[in-house]
Each structure stands twice: as structure tokens, then as C-alpha cells.
Computed example of a mutant assay.
Amino acid sequence: MIDFYKFLAKAEYFIPEHPAWKTRQVNLAFKTIYGAQVVKNVETTDLHIEAPKANDAFRETILDGGELRPLTSVEQRWLLDALLAIGNTEMYLLHWFMIATGARIQTACTLRVGFFLGHPHAFGGHLAGGRQVVKLKCGPGTLIDTKGGKHGILHIPQALFEAMRTYAHSDRAKTRRRAAKRGDQQNQYLFLTNRGQPYYLSKDDARVFDPEHTSSYLCDGGTVRKFVSDRLLPAIRERHDQQFHFKIHDLRATFGMNCVDLLMPRVQKGEITLSKVLGTVQELMWHSSLQTTERYLQYRSRMQVIYAAIDGYGEQVQAWIAGANSLRGSDE
């Protein structure tokens, strides 16, 4: 709006009798994608809209393309156990893949079957611990979608890769591919519904008009999200915790925290440096900004401080209650 009124004044369509705002110069400090500190001089005004903020001291989230909540190791076990009990193979592998690689939903759902049916793959060492992995290129030119068209490499643990290869060769997967548009061929989606529809339509396919795609769920992973809300969450809540909640993108943050938890003991032993952890997690999660990666390293310590403070206050409250009860007893 300020730019709009500046334009009006410059064009002499509207010139206010009195100054509409006061301007001043401020310096904004931020970090580049390489971690260098940069200061930029900008002009600001005294106009702003007050928006009250409710700061939650117990906020268990990390800001990474949204507020993400890493699942604890216990919650991850609940999740995979519930998926096994439900018995939907595609959903089980999708969730396992996202937890194990940090892939976003559009990446996991646009994997192509040819990668898992093709020539034998060489297994390399995982960046976060030396485990055996298969590397998969994603982004433009690979048919596998990424956010913002970014190029990246996913590190798939060998056990997960073998499970997905077995699925790709299964009669269940072949039946779904035969029912799909373009049939059973190398560039077909690995994961399809029982009607042969993709869970997430790739950008290339979305550009081609197809009157048969009548369900809105087919376009952006809605089928997966509906499965989570209608079947997965109720199953976990019934078995474990009525208050349990998560959204599909939380699995990305879960992967990031799993990497940090795996590497930090090596830092404490002096085997690697903290900067090595930062660089490794940044590479595994395709972060453009080191500042985003730093939030993962700070998460555990931040939560420990918060809960230590609350626990200490709780003990003090109990002491006050005990003191009040003793006084009441003496009065009686």
C-alpha cells in the first residue's frame, strides 16, 4: 500500500496535505547460504499493523518451510506399527521412505518404478553414519518432483531400497501399473492407487490436460493426507495416545532430527566437529540456508532448557502446596 501511494504522489494523482508516514534507514543483518554475515541498509516507515502473538513456550516445532514437529523415536515406532497393522503396503513404504530420506511428499509420490527395476545399484556409505545406501537423483530431468525445481540426491538405506525393489516386482504393484495411464513401463509411478492413479501428479503430467482426473486428491497428495486423517491417526490414538497428532510434512523434520541424534554422540567423542554435523545435515536435507539447518542442532537443547525450567517450577509449586497443607494441619 505504501508503494501504491508513493506511485500516486510521483504521478501527481494524489499529494497528501501532510506527510502520510515517517521514513528511516535501518540495517538488517542476515546470513547468506554460505553462512556469511551480511548487513543490508533498507528504508522503513512508522506504519505497521499490530498483530498479537501468542508465544507457546512448549512449542515443539522447527521452522523449515513451515512449523514442523519432529516425531520422537517412540512415536516413529507407533507410526510404523500402525501402518503395518493397517496393511496398506504403499502407505507403509511411502511413510518409511519419507522418514528415512527426508523426502517431501511430492518427491516420494513421484518416484519412478524404473529406478527400482533397473540395473543393480552400487551401495555407498551414508553421510550420516557409514551405513549402506543407494543414491537417487531428483529434480528437473529425472521425472521426480522437488520443491521449487531444486536438484538433489536422496540417500536411501539399503534395507528400504530392497523392500521397495521387492514391492516394484510384486504382483500387487504390477496390477496397479497395468491399470494406470501409460501402463506398466519404466517411467510409471512406483506408487499408485488400486485404480492405477498416482498419489501425486508430477509437474510434467499436470501440464497435460486429462479429463479422467476428476478427483482433487490426485493432484497434490490429498489421498495420502486423507489416509493419515481417516485411518492412520485414529489407529495410533486408539493404541497409544489420544492426543497424538502429526502432519505428513513432519516426517521431513523427523528425518533431520534423526540425523542430528545419530551424529551428535560422535561430536561428544571428538570424532567429528559440530561444523561437520551442520554441513552433513544441510546436504542431506537440501537446505539452501545454513540458518535453517542450525535450527535442528538447536532444537534438542532448546527443549531441554524449557522442560528443565518448567520441571523446576513444578517442584517449587509442590513445595508451596506441601507447606500450605502443613500450616492447615497445625491450625486444626
Rank of each mutant, 00 (worst) to 15 (best):
R295M: 03
Q282C: 02
E50F: 15
S229A: 15
A82S: 15
Q304L: 14
F30C: 06
R178S: 09
F246N: 00
V133N: 06
G256P: 03
G129R: 09
E238W: 14
Q197E: 13
Q282M: 04
G118F: 05
F227L: 02
S216Y: 07
S289R: 15
R24I: 02
D204K: 14
Q37K: 14
T32S: 13
F227N: 01
T72L: 00
S288A: 12
F4H: 11
T89Q: 11
L68R: 02
R104V: 00
E43S: 08
I33S: 11
A57H: 14
T175K: 03
D230M: 05
R266I: 02
I272S: 08
T293I: 10
Y199E: 02
K181Q: 10
E60A: 00
G129M: 08
S289T: 10
G124P: 05
L71P: 00
Q132P: 06
S326K: 13
W96Y: 14
D184N: 15
G222P: 01
I49E: 09
D145Q: 05
K226L: 13
L201A: 07
N55I: 15
F209W: 13
I306R: 02
E12W: 09
Y92Q: 10
T110K: 06
M164S: 02
P157D: 06
V317N: 09
P70N: 06
Q298P: 02
C109M: 11
D220M: 12
A163E: 13
V260N: 00
D56A: 08
G196P: 04
E67D: 13
V113T: 00
S288R: 15
H213L: 10
L262W: 03
H151I: 00
G221N: 01
L136H: 03
